[in-house]
Write a protein that binds this DNA or RNA. Structure first.
Length: 196
DNA sequence: TACGTGATCACG
DNA sequence: GTGATCACGTAA
């Protein structure tokens, strides 16, 4: 069943990033349904330098982060890759969770068509790869996550801290000391987790 | 390890 | 208007 708005409106983005592991990210476009189990996330908070909305800075790109939790924040990275985030917290408090990897569940053929035949474990094992595989582009920016086009679902998969690996977030060296925050979460041993 | 790639943002 | 920058992926 789809996650309710209240799931996203909570104020602890780290807690939400952890609890998104094992949830199912689903897209449905042009009669193609694709889905994957979330196996890697990163938390971002307006209070730290890694975040696009650091210090409450609102721009044309990140304004959806300031809306109530439960929307998609999708932006273009390095001129090529669409990255998918889940906006959290209440209106005006800009927190978000980056989804970095999923394990394919439904529509693997469609994903291969979109990504090319790159091999089973390369299909969705990174933040740019999974958006391509699931057909997520910037037109998804601002969509609520309980529409019929994109949503996140609870499939009863639960992980305790024994099954979750924690680490520093990837690719944010510009964040200074905040780059060391242990806000990256991975399902231990899962084959689709992005880079080591 | 190196670079493609183009939107974005802080300048003025 | 302009230029530096960038929450990545790929080949090598």
């Amino acid at each position: 069943m789809k996650l309710e708005p209240a799931f996203y409106h909570r104020n602890n983005v780290v807690t939400i990033a952890r609890s998104l592991l094992g949830k199912l990210l689903v897209t449905h476009k042009n009669h193609d349904k694709t889905s994957g189990i979330i196996v890697e996330t990163e938390a971002y908070s307006w209070k730290e330098r890694g975040c696009h909305a650091y210090g409450g800075k609102c721009t044309a790109r990140n304004e959806v982060m300031f809306e109530p939790g439960g929307k998609a924040y999708v932006y273009l990275c390095y001129g090529m890759h669409n990255l998918f985030n889940v906006v959290t917290n209440r209106e005006g408090i800009a927190d978000a969770v980056l989804v970095r990897a999923v394990e394919p569940l439904e529509g693997e053929e469609v994903m291969i068509n979109r990504r090319g035949d790159v091999g089973r474990y390369q299909l969705t094992s990174g933040p740019g790869k999974l958006t391509r595989a699931l057909g997520i582009d910037r037109t998804f920016n601002g969509k609520t996550l309980w529409t019929n086009e994109v949503w996140i679902e609870d499939i009863g998969m639960k992980f305790n801290s024994k099954h979750i690996e924690t680490g520093k977030r990837i690719g944010i060296d510009y964040a200074g000391a905040d780059a060391n925050l242990p806000w990256r979460f991975m399902v231990k041993g899962n084959r689709w987790v992005s880079r080591i």
